[in-house]
């Protein structure tokens, strides 16, 4: 446990002791700000039935910046250690592979959660700045928080896997964004091909757009919770195998 904590601390520090983490934080905060101001403009233009939280998470720029967060925060994790050779010093120290994998994953995931603090502040700012109570309920905010955490849990794991598979950060990043974009478009399959084929239910089950839609309305569904957590754990298990396997083949 102590080893895990030491490794975790080292990974977290790596985010904050280089300009890199701050650049990502600034990029995400700006995009969240744009989302909020776009949705405030929409609310001002015409009456809308949905809440502020719902609209903010359904602005056109949301998926753009959201999916790009993951390659940015994960591509470095294993690829860099592999390239500089520090993986060798880690794996020849009394460190178990699962400790290494989970510390890196947990660090990236915690950093990801931190990225949403500006969004929370934004929603609070609405009330302070406009003197009108912010038009959303606690339920929709909670739902949004849950789905953002769940998607982040799985997608960060995907990034870890991609980073463990190569010693090039660029390739790891491209692989991550590629996988995430494919996953994203799987949700559009029923929209494009219609509901007439029998497998369309699966695509609804996978659709992160739909999940986001329900959760930001405050409808917390147990199926996505199971889906994202099992997929994340499975992907981390694969990552563990890849890191271990590399010691086998070389």
């Amino acid at each position: 446990m102590r080893t895990l904590l030491t490794l975790y601390r080292k990974e977290i520090r790596a985010f904050f002791l280089s300009p890199f983490g701050w650049v990502v934080l600034a990029f995400v905060a700006i995009m969240q700000g744009i989302s909020l101001s776009t949705s405030m403009k929409a609310l001002g233009d015409a009456p809308i039935r949905e809440s502020l939280v719902y609209i903010t998470f359904h602005t056109p720029n949301f998926w753009f910046y959201f999916l790009f967060i993951f390659p940015l925060i994960t591509m470095r994790l294993f690829a860099e250690e592999e390239r500089t050779g520090t993986l060798e010093t880690l794996l020849t120290a009394p460190v178990r592979t699962w400790q290494l994998v989970s510390s890196k994953f947990l660090a990236a995931f915690s950093f990801y959660l931190l990225l949403w603090i500006p969004a929370l502040v934004h929603f609070q700012l609405f009330g302070t700045l406009t003197d009108i109570a912010a038009p959303f309920t606690l339920g929709s905010l909670l739902g949004a928080a849950v789905i953002i955490a769940l998607m982040g849990f799985f997608f960060t794991a995907v990034g870890c896997l991609a980073s463990a598979m190569t010693s090039s950060q660029i390739i790891a990043g491209i692989l991550t964004i590629g996988l995430l974009v494919i996953h994203y478009f799987l949700g559009y399959v029923p929209v494009i091909w219609g509901e007439s084929f029998r497998a369309s239910g699966i695509f609804h089950y996978l659709s992160c757009q739909e999940h986001l839609q329900f959760f930001t309305k405050g409808l917390i569904d147990s199926r996505p919770i199971v889906y994202y957590s099992t997929m994340a754990i499975f992907t981390l298990f694969l990552t563990h195998l890849v890191v271990d396997f590399r010691r086998w083949k070389q």
């Binding site: 002791l17 050779g85 060798e88 010093t89 020849t92």
Partner: peptide, 16 residues
Amino acid sequence: RRRIGYLPESVPLYRD
């Protein structure tokens, strides 16, 4: 591994 101190050939270190 607990009983070994190992210095690899390329001396990999964390630059930062």
